[in-house]
């Protein structure tokens, strides 16, 4: 009766259990409690929410271990944390702290502009961002056990999340409609391994859970992403940069469960106070677009 940890099934299975849920960015134990009380399925512990990273600039790195441990002690739900793209030592540190999922995230400043982390090397599962199917499959090939569409973090503008979900969904549907002998060229074009391309063509979905992130700020945004085929949503700056975080967090959780019922989404949208002010992605100069980090 050998007990095996860190298998693909255990890692991917963890993401399956988060489906239909909202994962919220938090920067301290108090926010983590608010998120848990609002019904979040997990929290993402980080030092600054993306909106502040954007506003303050500078190099964004893994969070302080003390801060992560305080959050772990404060809540009973899973705690995720971010490592820089390619920074496998930050990832090792996070694994040693016992975080439940590592986000190899473009929201932090990349540590390696060529290689991502070899995620098969870890017992802890990873979630990675993607803007299209090829990028998603390259991350899965490196061992990612969950994918989130990137969107444009810290903006409160949902348009890029929408674009990335449409792109990933569209490319999956295209593969499903192809003859098998056309998949070789499709794999070349997607710059993704043939075996994964074939699997997606056959099953009509990614081999791992697909969440959405980046710019989600309202219950209606969350419901929109669910109706685009997301398995769940990450909400970063959208909650704790708004007027009434506890109420907005609970409202987004409700709208994610009943995304297909406009009456529930309407009720959830009432009386939430001010949403985060946000920035239009179109007004962001290209070097400040986080979604373009990672390849």
């Amino acid at each position: 009766m050998a007990e095996v940890t860190g298998t693909a099934r255990v890692k991917r299975g963890m993401a399956e259990m988060l489906k239909g849920g909202v994962i919220m960015d938090v920067v301290n134990a108090e926010q983590a409690k608010i998120a848990e009380d609002a019904g979040a399925v997990a929290v993402m512990a980080l030092e600054r929410v993306p909106a502040d990273i954007r506003a303050q600039g500078g190099v964004a790195r893994m969070s302080d271990p003390d801060m992560i441990e305080k959050i772990q002690a404060a809540v009973s739900i899973p705690v995720m944390a971010k490592a820089r793209i390619g920074h496998f030592v930050e990832a090792q540190v996070l694994q040693s702290l016992g975080v439940d999922y590592i986000d190899e995230s473009e929201v932090l400043t990349p540590a390696d502009y060529e290689n991502h982390i070899d995620k098969w090397d870890f017992t802890i599962p990873f979630v990675c961002g993607a803007t299209n199917l090829g990028e998603a499959l390259r991350r899965i090939n490196e061992g990612a056990a969950m994918i989130r569409s990137k969107g444009e973090a810290g903006t409160g503008d949902v348009s890029n999340a929408m674009q990335h979900m449409r792109k990933i969904g569209g490319e999956i549907r295209r593969l499903s409609s192809m003859r098998e002998d056309e998949l070789y060229v499709a794999a070349k074009e997607l710059q993704a391994p043939f075996a994964l391309v074939k699997e997606v063509a056959e099953t009509g979905k990614l081999p791992v859970v697909l969440f959405t992130a980046g710019g989600i700020a309202t219950p209606a945004d969350a419901a929109l992403m669910m109706s685009m085929g997301a398995d769940g949503v990450f909400i970063g700056s959208g909650i704790f940069k708004s007027g009434n975080p506890a109420q907005r967090a609970a409202a987004c959780v409700k709208a994610t469960t009943f995304w297909d019922d406009p009456k529930v989404v309407a009720d959830a949208s009432r009386g939430l106070g001010e949403a985060m002010v946000g920035i239009n992605v179109a007004d962001l100069p290209a070097p400040h677009r986080l979604a373009e980090r990672g390849w």
């Binding site: 050998a2 095996v4 940890t5 255990v10 009973s76 899973p78 016992g98 975080v99 439940d100």
Partner: peptide, 13 residues
């Protein structure tokens, strides 16, 4: 709850 530990301890057998 979470008696077998955090995700790092999750296993199959």
């Amino acid at each position: 709850r979470n008696a077998f530990g955090r995700q790092v301890d999750s296993f199959e057998t």
